[in-house]
Design a protein around this nucleic acid. Sequence first.
DNA 1: TTGTACGCGTTATCAC
DNA 2: GTGATAACGCGTACAA
Lengths: 316, 316
Amino acid sequence: MVSIADVAKKAHVSKMTVSRVLNHPEQVSTEISDTVQRAINELGYVQQRAGRALATSRTYTIAFVMLDEVSNVDPYFGQLITYVSDFLYQEGYNLELHRSLDDHFHDIDGILVSGARATDKAKLNALTFPIVAYGNQSEFASVDVDNKLGTMLAKQHLIMCGYQHLIYLGIDLNEQFVVERLNGFKAIETPDYMTETIYQLPNSDKEARQLFNSITLPPLTGVVAASDRLALGTLYSCYDKRLAVPNDVGIVGFDGIFINHLSPLDLTTIGQPLQKIAQKMVQTLLSAISSNHQNIRQSVIPPTLLQGETTTKLAD
Amino acid sequence: MVSIADVAKKAHVSKMTVSRVLNHPEQVSTEISDTVQRAINELGYVQQRAGRALATSRTYTIAFVMLDEVSNVDPYFGQLITYVSDFLYQEGYNLELHRSLDDHFHDIDGILVSGARATDKAKLNALTFPIVAYGNQSEFASVDVDNKLGTMLAKQHLIMCGYQHLIYLGIDLNEQFVVERLNGFKAIETPDYMTETIYQLPNSDKEARQLFNSITLPPLTGVVAASDRLALGTLYSCYDKRLAVPNDVGIVGFDGIFINHLSPLDLTTIGQPLQKIAQKMVQTLLSAISSNHQNIRQSVIPPTLLQGETTTKLAD
DNA sequence: TTGTACGCGTTATCAC
DNA sequence: GTGATAACGCGTACAA
């Protein structure tokens, strides 16, 4: 195990100089810096976390708290955790995965949380670590996709395509992102020639399918679904009823992770830029950790419309 | 930050005694042990990894190397990593997520790897850490679902249900698990009255759908698919062709993670016991780490048949 | 610009 | 059965 002392000896300098080359390069003359760098390379030295952790009383470990039920949630989790882990690793941090806010948190520098509901706020407030949430959380720093913009893009797209009637299929939850998605839909003006209906359901393809099977769709209906799961249920119902997608019915989902490609037709959907979200979460958290003060700021990342096979520009 | 010294002072003993209470309780008298325990509880002391790491020259960090493309793979990854992380955490270990064997591994105690192909063996051999793989790897310790048993169960199930013709839809890859699944199918004798056909495809629902759309199925065909993704494509083709599932065609998938529930009909499938797999992987790795010698052993976990809506006991 | 001395929390060694 | 001491690798305060 090659340590900083080995490098120091090889470069004929003190340990401190080596440490400075690593942490405060500007304080070291270029000449010595070069010598030290060469020694580092030749010996294959890599900084050990334990020593640094002990000296700085930082653990270089971040807890990622996944509150959604992994087996039920849209499979964004695997992607998000992967990106988060990548960015953390680049900064020399480790990841510790938790699935409950009741865990005993210690030996960490900060917390990333995903899937926090309004009811979790008390527990989050009780924690003394810097926190960054995925999803709008007014009391904490958070990063979220621009949910409102997403459904605005979706509705606009359906109007442009030439669908004649609009349905918004929302989620039946009292959560911020749900409200925002609905707001986005409402924010785009519905042309006079179109009708518009709004439904709210649990986020389940089976529920969506059942709903659509129980109602009659006007010709050329365009559906804005608040999730790909709901969009999938909508599509299934169209199959059940022998309605042609995208020519009789147009469907736009929301999320753009996995489900949209697994569907019998690729879903047109609003894609969440998970990589950018992960990056922003890590950036925000690490800067809160090093600046030692929570900057309660909500960052919002714009989504993009991913064209699939469930919408098309209709002939006049 | 309450340290071992604080506990020692409060319990009127030396730091060493506290350390022994934590690590070698048998060397401490019950009386003193109780006193120390009380002090620990009252102060809310928790052992800090950094110090322990430094003293033991272990990092208490495990690298999990995910070689499958997260965005493409069946979403078992989120589940597996969650379980693995849980078990590691219980043992005081941290998780570090990697996605390539070309990363520079250091500052870790061992490696868990998922999705390793035959072509990765050289790189794995070059690593000096204890390694446990998910999926059969003859040269390393590995944990895998009993793939052969899985397809045996699937075929047996279709025969019992009363389907008259069998199709095995395999994966077109030269990998151990693929071979095993095919072997399982072959291991169950096909009754004289049944025909049997074998296909091999890339693991893609679209490919499976296309294949089935291009062939004519005998009545009462039972399909054993080597993955839920292939099963899904098979089901889509049945929809395309207006064949009734499960009455005209029976389908059994393999994996039982997410996709089976997202399908228009819940898939009958062979469920991978991911929690048990994760547990075994962690157990095996940690014991290799503490015993300091790789025990190259292949563990195999039996899967179970999950009854869904794509098979049914047919009337005679 | 560079070096010395010390401390971070824990455990191993060795003495008692 | 228990305690004193040194050691692990690194960074900071301070001195030169």
